[in-house]
């Protein structure tokens, strides 16, 4: 098991400390920024269920480093005391009533299955 605690990014700005950031770090200009190592790419691959070949891995590392450097532009922005906004509109309490509206859905559910056995999806064995 890979422990993320061991996967440290070499970064001077990733402490998540809003508003306490030097101003010379401006977007694209940051070139020394992030270093993504093999372990991190491997770990993210496990999370995302993507396996990358050697070449793809190098490309992914470079891409992610660039992207993270660019994203660092945000650190210029003082967001202290700002409430994170997940929904743009104050829409609340959208519910449905507890009434059965669906019948036997098995045929439609299974219609696109890559592999099915009778009325179930077949997958590689999950527990050894």
């Amino acid at each position: 098991m890979i422990n993320l605690m061991n996967v440290k990014l070499i970064s001077n700005e990733m402490n998540g400390n809003d508003g306490n950031v030097s101003n010379d770090l401006t977007g694209k200009e940051v070139s020394m920024g992030h270093r993504i190592d093999d372990e991190t790419i491997e770990y993210v691959g496990i999370l995302a269920k993507l396996s990358l070949t050697g070449q793809e891995k190098e490309k992914a590392k470079a891409d992610m480093e660039k992207m993270l450097d660019y994203i660092d532009t945000l650190n210029e922005l003082d967001t202290q005391g700002i409430e994170p906004m997940s929904h743009v509109f104050p829409v609340n309490n959208v519910f449905r009533d507890d009434v059965i509206s669906n019948g036997d859905g098995s045929e439609e559910t299974l219609a696109n299955a890559p592999l099915r056995k009778n009325n179930e999806f077949e997958v590689p064995k999950t527990i050894g």
Partner: peptide, 17 residues
């Protein structure tokens, strides 16, 4: 969703998108 929660039932019969 509006699928029944009834216990049992043939596999995948109480399902929807």
């Amino acid at each position: 969703c509006g699928c029944s929660t009834e216990f049992g039932g043939a596999p995948n019969t109480h399902t929807c998108p």
